[in-house]
Design a binder for these strands. Structure first.
Lengths: 192, 192
DNA sequence: GTCTATAGCCCGATAGAC
DNA sequence: GTCTATCGGGCTATAGAC
């Protein structure tokens, strides 16, 4: 990937996070990336094409980060909790979650698909850890691991929403501690 | 409120839900409401002013609906569950939650405040029901009622996000059933 | 690969007539 | 109260030169 294309993708990742899809203009991308109009349209067919490249990079970065945090020698439940408590730029919101508010992103299959795949991948990873905990006799086996994983993902996404509305990270942190306390209440012999 | 102003507020509520704040133009509002430009600017100073009126109406409608659903002679925990299972246009997203993705809404105190107040009111209402359940000996008294209420709000908001990404109501429903199962596991003598 | 020019349209708001 | 005209600017994309 050429240097100009590289900078365009990086800049688009930033602007999609800050301003959303509808709020990000090709002009703004070019200005911040220091790349001319002709150059941008040489490398990317359209705004949607560039946004797709930015989305794909953001989702793979987020998945790689989650995988890093959920790996290690610790008990599976501890790794899920570590992921839940992962420090985040809460008031900036979720880079990919916020894109779901944009009607054009949702209406465009190509732009929606990476979001779905990313959430599916993260949910599956958490679900696998919960099942692992159940098989090791460390978590109530009667729980639906996939449902709890989905709930966990939802708490995080919803936490961002509440925090941005409040103008404070407090609701995010409270929601996270709430779900952790409910899950740990179903843990077996996990008191260290 | 005059008939024109009334139609403008109603139409703006619809458009904010469908297209967001940045995606809703005064022109689009006027066209759908069947009200001319001059008329609109006679009743409302600006787009933000009209959006504020629409936001206020939407939040008071949502709070009234929640209050209706969480009232009744049933046990407090049942009323919380009934609220959680309340039928919703899931794929349209939350009318007010989605506005938190807009940077201009978040940056404008007047437009952010109604969102914060609505989420605070709903969280407080759920929290009160959870405490009521605890005082009646129907819910584990060691739980932090306010934190669980915040978690509950977050699950709903995050459920919308996951559902819109997936293009399916399934993740929303799964997340809701997950949190219900975790809360009911802390219920005392609630098996009917 | 990158440049400038231009197209055609929409934006949010104001002015002043009626 | 509602109308039309108009402002200065931004939007996404294409064309054709260099």
């Amino acid at each position: 990937m050429s240097d100009a294309a590289e900078r365009l993708v990086l800049t688009t990742q930033e602007l999609l996070w800050e301003r959303g899809y509808g709020g990000t203009s090709p002009r703004a991308i070019q200005d911040r990336a220091g790349v001319g109009q002709g150059s941008m349209y040489h490398h990317f067919r359209s705004k949607a094409d560039l946004a797709l490249a930015a989305e794909k990079r953001s989702t793979s970065e987020l998945i790689a980060e989650a995988e890093r945090v959920m790996s290690g020698p610790e008990k599976p439940l501890e790794r899920v909790v570590r992921y839940l408590r992962l420090e985040r730029a809460v008031l900036k919101g979720c880079r990919i979650g916020m894109l779901t508010a944009d009607p054009d992103v949702i209406a465009t299959e190509a732009l929606r698909a990476p979001l779905k795949e990313a959430f599916d991948a993260l949910t599956t990873r958490i679900s696998a850890l919960l099942r692992e905990a159940q098989e090791a006799g460390q978590l109530d086996a009667s729980l639906d691991a996939h449902a709890i994983a989905t709930t966990t993902m939802a708490v995080r996404q919803g936490g961002y929403v509440l925090a941005r509305a409040a103008g404070s990270t407090q609701p995010y942190e409270e929601a996270i501690e709430g779900i952790i306390s409910l899950i740990e209440a179903r843990a077996i012999g996990a008191r260290d």
